[in-house]
Design a protein around this nucleic acid. Structure first.
Lengths: 338, 338
DNA sequence: TCTGGCACTCGAACGTACAGAGTGCCAACG
DNA sequence: CGTTGGCACTCTGTACGTTCGAGTGCCAGA
């Protein structure tokens, strides 16, 4: 068990290291923080903290830097989430309010987040699996060619081309369109499949093939779109990473291009709260020297997608968490309004 | 005027420098290339080339490196476009053939280009201004709320919400939808405005406000979408840039996030051929130590958008140009087929 | 016009020395 | 027992001087 003061020492180390990016020694610590004890005492505490694995020395006779475990303790017990100032909040709201469509909302969010945290921002487009259907449209492009357009309540539009097994008349088309909409509009994507299962039966034999094709395309679209889209921004902030540059930055850039990796990272954000993955806690090894702060966002209590930032383990956790949470809230509001 | 041999020396310098990334001296040159003359002669030639501004020395008594002007001459007169090998061509075609929709085509293209050139790839989505309308759909979401969906022949879908000044009946809606489509389907975007100008007049007074709103939204969409979307990839290749890292890479990453800047860069690609902008020829100063190779692509002789790569001025121009041209061709083919 | 020779320059690499920051340990103190 | 001041030790980073080598410019001769 660590005494109160030892925790205080760890907190001071983390704060100083985050600020200076340099290993911090006992003397500097006592000067910068009012710990009320002498450097020698701090040295003893540091030796203990090191023994427990919370801090480490890059080399003998250098200062200490926090380990992943140290950051973890810091985040869990020593640091709160730093709320943004109210001018900041207003700025966020104003900036997001200017968005004209979904792409714009996501684009603005990613820029905002990158700017606030001075790190790399990642924003997932609102997920279709959680959304509901606003409208399904069927268009006839050619005698045996249809286009299926799916419109969601989050403002997303997906379209698919369909080659029909047999020509499909305008009347049947209108019929199918009407029936489809009456059954699925307002429904959640996950609820759709059983609702349309029996539709082909109510059509004439000639048309059943086409109806089935349309339905399977629709269901496919719902599933496929679980494979989400992402937007990232602020990669230029990577250049602030440190001195040991190319080695650190390269795998990060690679990871950022692997949407699958990013989605997994974001995916680890807990339903309710914020998730902070520190260094080696990230499964993807290219990101072993970075931390990921992510959180879900959505409108009206529903989490429709996630967003977060990727930065060095040596980051300002309270500030970053505050910014991420605030942005997530405001984006949720914007989505709810539109 | 530069003699044949001097040009040959310049070519050798460029090739060696691109290969080794190190200033190249007279002795090394004669060893690596069969110039048929001694190092002393080459030195004289180099002195002259330097006087003319084609090469420079980083410091006295170091080898020479090409200047932007030197690269320019190299590209214009000394180097051809290196065609890809036929296995490469097959690989490209196979890879692009697997694409399922427009997003996928662009995504694959950007990855392909980044991989082939080992540089940063930028691909513009097919432009709407050049495309034609495949279908316009109008949906009623609420009594006084419509959704406009625009579908293009390149497979893009755009949607806009419309708040009507007055309620709009289903009959009027169907009427407007039919008239709109009969007038604009198959037309180029730029041709649309005059074709729909007189539409409000043929509706009843009550509906004219709404019809006008719909039309202006439609025209707005066409124009707004001239503000194009981009996809970029291969940013990890920036880490191969050089030793003077952070200074070079930072402004490039920043530029890459400024879509406007990128669009301008691509925009400089000539209608017909390929454009190569070397170093300071780029208007944006963050890219002063990079070169941009760009070319238009499209289906059936029409240029619908552009693509290209951004890399260090010290790049393999013939190879890069070959890859860019080849990819552009195949993307054009794919678009023509779909 | 080309070539070989020669003196010169300058950066990169290496070794040494030194200062500074930080540590661990220990004895002493409240 | 926890805390403190003192002290010897161990590193890294920096500065400095030397050497080495690649490359140059110039010149005289073929």
């Amino acid at each position: 068990m660590l005494s109160e003061r030892r925790l205080e020492v760890l907190r001071a180390i983390v704060q100083d290291y985050v600020g200076t990016e340099e290993p911090v020694g006992s003397k500097a610590l006592t000067e910068r923080h009012r710990l009320g004890v002498s450097p020698a005492t701090v040295r003893n505490d540091m030796a203990l903290l090191e023994e427990e694995g919370y801090i480490a020395q890059p080399h003998t006779s250098a200062g200490r830097i926090p380990t992943d475990k140290g950051y973890r303790l810091f985040v869990d017990r020593l640091a709160g989430v730093k709320p943004l100032s109210s001018p900041e909040r207003r700025a966020i709201q104003n900036f997001l309010d200017g968005a004209v469509d979904l792409d714009d909302v996501v684009g603005r969010t990613v820029r905002l987040l990158a700017q606030l945290t001075r790190q790399v921002a990642v924003v997932q487009y609102p997920s279709l699996t959680r959304s509901t259907v606003r409208h399904v449209e069927l268009l006839s492009l050619a005698p045996a060619r249809l286009m299926l357009v799916l419109i969601t309540d989050t403002g997303r539009v997906e379209q698919r081309l369909i080659d029909c097994p047999s020509p499909f008349g305008e009347a049947s088309l209108a019929d199918l369109r009407a029936r489809l909409n009456s059954r699925v509009v307002g429904r959640r994507f996950t609820d759709v499949p059983p609702l349309v299962q029996d539709l082909p039966e109510s059509f004439e034999a000639d048309d059943r093939g086409t109806v089935s094709t349309v339905l399977s395309t629709l269901l496919e679209t719902l599933v496929e779109e679980a494979e989400e889209r992402l937007m990232i921004g602020g990669t230029a902030n990577l250049t602030r990473f440190g001195h040991d540059f190319p080695l650190t930055i390269r795998p990060v850039l690679e990871a950022l291009e692997e949407q699958v990796v990013l989605l997994k990272l974001l995916g680890e954000a807990n339903e309710s709260g914020m998730a902070v993955r520190i260094g080696h806690e990230n499964a993807y090894e290219g990101l072993n020297s970075t931390s990921v702060v992510s959180v879900g966002y959505g409108s009206g209590g529903e989490t429709v997608a996630k967003l977060g930032v990727v930065g060095p383990t040596r980051m300002d956790y309270p500030g970053t968490m505050g910014a991420v949470r605030a942005v997530a809230r405001y984006v949720g509001q914007i989505l709810a309004e539109s």
